[in-house]
Design a protein around this nucleic acid. Sequence first.
DNA 1: GTTTATTACAAAAACGTTTTTGGAAAACAA
DNA 2: TTGTTTTCCAAAAACGTTTTTGTAATAAAC
Lengths: 342, 342
Amino acid sequence: MTSIKQIAKEVGASVSTVSRALNGYHDVNPKTREKVIEAARNLNYFPSSAARSLVTKRTYMIGLFFGDNVNSGFEDPFFQKVLSAIRELVGDAGYDLLVFTNKNKERATYTTLCRERGVDGTILILTGREKQVNSQLTDLQNSGIPCVAIDVPLEGDRCTYVESDNFLGMKKAVSYLAGLGHRQIAFIGGDEVSKISLDRLNGYRSGLNDAGISYDPDLIEMGYYAKEYAELAVKNILKKNKKVTAFVCASDVMAFAAIETLQEEGCSVPGEASVIGFDDVNEAAGYHIPLTTVKQNKEEIGRAATEQLLKIIEDPALSPSPIMIPCELIVRQSAAEAPKKT
Amino acid sequence: MTSIKQIAKEVGASVSTVSRALNGYHDVNPKTREKVIEAARNLNYFPSSAARSLVTKRTYMIGLFFGDNVNSGFEDPFFQKVLSAIRELVGDAGYDLLVFTNKNKERATYTTLCRERGVDGTILILTGREKQVNSQLTDLQNSGIPCVAIDVPLEGDRCTYVESDNFLGMKKAVSYLAGLGHRQIAFIGGDEVSKISLDRLNGYRSGLNDAGISYDPDLIEMGYYAKEYAELAVKNILKKNKKVTAFVCASDVMAFAAIETLQEEGCSVPGEASVIGFDDVNEAAGYHIPLTTVKQNKEEIGRAATEQLLKIIEDPALSPSPIMIPCELIVRQSAAEAPKKT
DNA sequence: GTTTATTACAAAAACGTTTTTGGAAAACAA
DNA sequence: TTGTTTTCCAAAAACGTTTTTGTAATAAAC
């Protein structure tokens, strides 16, 4: 590594002058600046970000945490797109992305890890189903570290979150089904704890309500966003209620699982049963029965999260508020008119 | 940030003693060590990695570069799995992952970016189709920065690369088709420049050769790993040669495109034409015609790359050699016996 | 009871930057 | 001329660590 000292020696100036020349300060003679820049170029100089950040307190790194859920992270079909958007915007703004992966820190928390690396801000990509993370989250909320979470309610001085309008999204799906004549609409939910799951459930109930359909707990099962559990959920509902004609699912993977299970049980989709998913992942359109689903605007979520974070970083006084991104019902072929009663 | 100084003041010791106590040196009294650790815990102390790395020359960060290709990065279905494996192993080894995304550096190169951030090593995820990157690559090769590339031949003192056995993989596909009676086997290649594309082409030719089939340039088209180009390629081949009964493609996306195009042209798959892909992406198994394809062992590629990189970092004397990961033919339903001649 | 080893600590230098402060030289004003 | 700006630069402190070197105080050896 060539340092600022070597440049100083090269051009016969002091270290401070070189620094000021390189950083475009006004009180340096154009000629010396030229010489400095020339020398820097020749010596292939680039400033050590560690040394710099030690004094400036800025690293131009954005931290990234993934939930410990297996699907979370690079492989999750939903988060991929969110990530791409984040990557894009963060890069445009002149930051690099630090993905926290180190597993050898015993007592580390989100906060300590951020402080240790000195990231300027951080993005949390969680599912809301992580365990024993709550104390860490409140800790982070109070830390003053600029931070925005995705899908998980996080509010503080310099903290906020971004999510889809899960309530309205799910409501749209149910209203659509009701419009097609369905009255027995089952709900394959995510889980019983996370905000997004609860919002989707409430959207479902609100949709039923608007359509004048009474809520039947027998039609509710949780699928935990996993294929296996979703299959079980569908089977359970079929056992309890033979008359169900539609399934609305809290994710596309669960919708795929539902369709497969229904077909295995000899029930055609969408002829005898309609299925609607949530997310609109890549596979949804090309699925053998193109999936009708509630699309989450993933790019927009990533974009909003990044922009918000950058704003929080820029302006210490800003007190941010949560951002909600609209969902859109994508009509394809997995939901159709309710079968006529026989 | 609470610093080592504050701990020193707290316990009435010198800065150096605190440092040595925390780092487990032997020449510190057990009692003072206890006090120091206690204080560190109470003050919620974590060492500034910037300050530390300034003197130790280690950051415990692994750099990550993505090719500028659109598909490259978080969204590429192939690299996702590679990435997951990298993430896992890097984390186990006590490193974090620095994704280079900053676009505001004018004259930056791989090498300068690595030096600037001080990463201990770096992984290159490229496609081999990046433009004007060659000089940067040779620069990196000579830099002495530990580095392993994926799919792109990179060799140097502390540089190497990992790739699938593309030659043998493609050869297996062709041999399989030949075994099914196909004689007119078209090849939808990747591109004309990258090593992996060339290796796959050579595997194709070798497969033909072994089966006693002569090579026909009319059956070769490039699809540039993109849906649109692959469609064009298939149409061109159909124009030139009506008798072709099989298509082997250098990627799954191109295979999907081929199947769709064939069906549009009124040619049933696998009845009238067989199609084999390459990669075995997630969608392959669930595709409406489950795709027969050459599976790249993505997790293994990521694992090998990471392990190799860590070894290079550990041992400055090690001169690494390239690693080749075997491919496996996954037989599903998109390839069948050649139709009888009519 | 002196010499030698051992134990436990502190002081200071170093890493590569930025930033603050101060001041000489040059330019301008009177 | 003298006084006052302005222009340009250097010295030094600071950021938070690690590491090297030195040295008291204590323990062991004879």
